[in-house]
Structure formats: structure tokens, C-alpha cells
């Protein structure tokens, strides 16, 4: 799997790779690392960005040889779709010329393009990769999405089953009426 090349990829993934290439904002030659996603797509990623991923750092600590060789670093829980987004995010935030306002606009657009399911998938990937900045951004954004929502929305969003009995739930809602949980 280490020798996997572009030719083995399936069609939709190829477009993903093209999309990924479009995102490149630097032409400069710098050392790159080969990352392989769970759906077996390999990405050549600037070392400066790849080394921001805790999972990559850890992998290289265990097997330092991987940085120099053509061996791909496997990212078992990240699919190409998520990795493309993660790279897009980090490239933008790494870009020296990006002003505060640019980043804000970028972040807003980045969020707008994701539906709830994609957002969750991305959070799982960010968690697995151990990328702190994106993880914090996503958790904060999800918190903003749900903060004014009702209890039922949040149960659905998190995929959580209600473990209260109707009496218990009514009691909780009564006690915490100030927080806006009272049945209407």
C-alpha cells in the first residue's frame, strides 16, 4: 500500500485529488510527506503542515524513517474528503498574507459549505489527527450552532437516546425553567 500511486485511484477520488491540487497556494519547493487516507488515497503534503497533525508527529516519532522514504503515513480514520478539507483549512490559516478578516471570511465560508453530518465527520477526523486548532474551531462552531436550539434538536444531532423517564424529564424541565427547557 506504500507504493500506491495515482493510477490506482477510482474516478470520483481523482476529482478529489484535483480539487486538492487547486488548493495549493504555494509553488515553492519544500519537503513533503506522503499521507494515505482510509480510502487509500495518497496525498503529498508540505511537511510544515503535516507536522501540525499530532497523529503524524506521533507516527514519525515511532518510525522516523517514514519522513525521508516514500512510505506513506497511514491515517486510518481520515477519509480523503476530510483530509482535503483539513488541508484547505490549514493552508489558509498558515498563509502568511492572510489577514484577520480574510481568515474570518474563510472560516465562515468553510462552515457554510458543510452540513451537520459533514461537520461531525470532520470533527471525528480532526480528533483522530489531533489537530488542535481545527478541533477547537469545530467544537466552538458546533457549540454556536446548538446553543439556542432545543433539547430535541440536540438529541438528534448527537445521536443520543433520552434516558429520562417522562416524570424525571418533566421534573428537570421544571427545575431548570430559567434555562428555557420548560415544555411549551
Amino acid at each position: 500500500m506504500a507504493e500506491e500511486t495515482e493510477s490506482t485511484k477510482t474516478e470520483p477520488l481523482k476529482t478529489a485529488e484535483e480539487e486538492f491540487k487547486k488548493l495549493e497556494i504555494t509553488e515553492e519547493e519544500e519537503s513533503e510527506l506522503k499521507l494515505e487516507t482510509s480510502d487509500h488515497v495518497t496525498f503529498m503534503v508540505e511537511a510544515s503542515i503535516a507536522m501540525k497533525f499530532g497523529a503524524v508527529q506521533q507516527y514519525l516519532e515511532v518510525s522516523p524513517a517514514a519522513s525521508a522514504s516514500a512510505t506513506a503515513i497511514p491515517l486510518h480514520n481520515v477519509a480523503s474528503r476530510e483530509l482535503i478539507l483539513i488541508l484547505e483549512y490549514y493552508r489558509m490559516h498558515d498563509w502568511v498574507d492572510a489577514g484577520e478578516r480574510d481568515l474570518k471570511e474563510f472560516d465562515e465560508r468553510f462552515l457554510k459549505d458543510l452540513n451537520y453530518e459533514e461537520l461531525k465527520e470532520l470533527l471525528l477526523a480532526a480528533n483522530y489527527l489531533n489537530v488542535e486548532k481545527l478541533f477547537n474551531f469545530l467544537t466552538k462552531s458546533i457549540a454556536n450552532i446548538i446553543r439556542n436550539k432545543d433539547v430535541e434538536f440536540v438529541r438528534t444531532f448527537f445521536g443520543i437516546d433520552n434516558d429520562y423517564t417522562p416524570e424525571e424529564e418533566a421534573a428537570y424541565r421544571e427545575e431548570n425553567a430559567w434555562a428555557g427547557v420548560k415544555f411549551v
Binding site: 446548538i146 439556542n148 440536540v154 448527537f158 428537570y172 431548570n176 434555562a179
Partner: peptide
């Protein structure tokens, strides 16, 4: 919000 969502689980 946190107090409200105590009702989730």
C-alpha cells in the same frame, strides 16, 4: 445552554 441540555441525557 449547558443547563438546558442537561435534559438531553
Amino acid at each position: 445552554s449547558l443547563k438546558r441540555f442537561g435534559c438531553v441525557h
